[in-house]
């Protein structure tokens, strides 16, 4: 009898715990820009769709389309509905802290930047983009010397197109330069900031300028606007490197590789951590090559462009970053490049 009551008690206790630790069923994804960039925001969306498929949760996306007047109300709307809110909070970090303070029971996961609030309610996920950009820079610096490839001139010039002149993009450029100079210190790196994230025409214009100045490879870090860079590469018969998602197939034969930043994968990982209880609120998660969240997308498209020896060299470089043998200093804000 005692045994039965004990079992009953345990069952009761277990069920009550289960109620409290009920898996979050509503997930919102609030982004400062718009979906459809084939890169950054879409990567997060793909991760979200995977979570939805696997765990049957409800998912909603709020796009702010770079309109600051939508940031606060969108976030508020999401916070009122969802259990877990993934946020890409460029431009509304302070509003995020304020809203997290209002809804302390909700889980806020800020992706790609580090947002701190006094009560440590917000969890941040940052990427060591310097590592991926380093590899992109190394690839570009090697490619610009491969004069046997069509379209490559003898000058050692490579380029990059950035969306905005902001900290995260500067970190990309910093890593890109480091990587290029690691291969050959004589490589010239030309950088253009277009001040835009969603106008491919502007990206294309900037890339055409860089190609005209002798660059053979242009690295795009400009979300949807950067798609124009890939199109420009195809138009003039030169090369480009994609960003965030695998963009190798957008201009086959001209996009050498893509510097992946696995926004979606990181969101999936965080969600799994929430489910199995290892998630730490207020923690700063830093993901890089080692965790498989940053790195180059080397696939058949790459193999059609680059010789095998070069690919092996790049993969060895990536491996030594993953193993920690090659350390890339993180970019510090304000540091001159």
């Amino acid at each position: 009898m005692k045994k039965i009551s004990l079992i009953l008690m345990t069952l009761l206790l277990a069920s009550s715990i289960a109620v409290f630790a009920a898996a979050p069923t509503k997930i919102a994804y609030v982004i400062n820009g718009s979906l459809g960039d084939h890169a950054f925001y879409d990567s997060g969306y793909a991760g979200l769709m995977q979570i939805k498929k696997e765990f049957g949760v409800k998912v909603k996306v709020l796009e702010c389309k770079f309109d600051p007047s939508l940031y606060y109300p969108s976030l508020l709307t999401a916070a009122r509905w969802a259990d877990v809110i993934f946020v890409i909070s460029y431009g509304f970090e302070k509003e995020l802290a304020r809203i997290a303070d209002r809804f302390p029971k909700k889980v806020f996961v800020n992706v790609d930047t580090n947002v701190k609030d006094p009560k440590h309610l917000i969890t941040s996920v940052v990427f060591r983009q310097e590592e991926g950009a380093f590899l992109a820079g190394a690839t570009a610096a090697i490619t610009t010397t491969l004069t046997q490839l069509p379209g490559i001139n003898p000058q050692k010039i490579i380029g990059a197109v950035g969306g905005d002149d902001d900290i995260v993009i500067k970190a990309f450029m910093y890593g890109y330069k480091k990587g290029a100079h690691y291969i050959d210190p004589a490589t010239k790196v030309k950088i253009v900031y277009i001040g835009n994230w969603d106008d491919p025409a502007k990206g294309k214009q900037a890339a055409l300028q860089l190609y005209a100045q002798g660059a053979d490879v242009v690295f795009q870090v400009a979300a949807l606007a950067g798609i124009g860079v890939l199109k420009a590469a195809k138009e003039v018969g030169k090369y480009a490197i994609g960003v965030d998602s695998n963009e190798n197939s957008i201009a086959p034969g001209h996009v050498i590789t893509s510097d992946l930043k696995e926004v979606g994968k990181s969101m999936y990982k965080i969600y799994k951590m929430i489910l199995d209880g290892t998630f730490k609120r207020g923690h700063l998660y830093s993901f890089g090559v080692k965790e498989g969240m940053v790195g180059l997308a080397i696939d058949d498209y790459t193999k059609k462009i680059l010789p095998k020896g070069v690919i092996d060299r790049i993969e060895r470089l990536q491996q030594s970053i993953a193993d920690g043998k090659l350390k890339i200093e993180p970019y510090k804000a304000g540091e001159d490049m």
Binding site: P68, S69, E95, D164
Partner: peptide, 12 residues
């Protein structure tokens, strides 16, 4: 909600 000037604040 911003209390600062940022790019794009003029919106529509």
């Amino acid at each position: 909600t911003q209390h600062r000037f940022m790019k794009g604040i003029g919106g529509n």
